[in-house]
Amino acid sequence: MEGIAKQKVPGGKLLIIKVRYNENIEDIKILGDFFIYPESAVIDIEAAIMGMASRSSEESLIGSIEAAVERAGAEMIGITPLAIAQTLRAAMMK
């Protein structure tokens, strides 16, 4: 299955999640007009989410995203791990 969801993060930027999933998340693209430093960290965050169960809780997704951000020494501007987790779950509910 494939899904897409969008969120204008309050006080932040536009976040678009495109996802392909079955029982697990097979592919994900995190898109939008936000900023991440270093930019390459977005690939690390996507990689951290891929393979997780598509029914993962918001808390579990946030944990994986935060761990990837920390490993990459990254800073997000205009989006948050919570916004990514919420938008991803919305994309898989449609």
């Binding site: 678009i16 693209k29 995190i30 898109l31 939008g32 007009d33 936000f34 991440i36 930019e39 977005v42």
Partner: peptide, 9 residues
């Protein structure tokens, strides 16, 4: 476009 955007979108 920004580096996290999709050209086609």
């Amino acid at each position: 476009i920004g580096c996290f955007q999709s050209m086609n979108d």
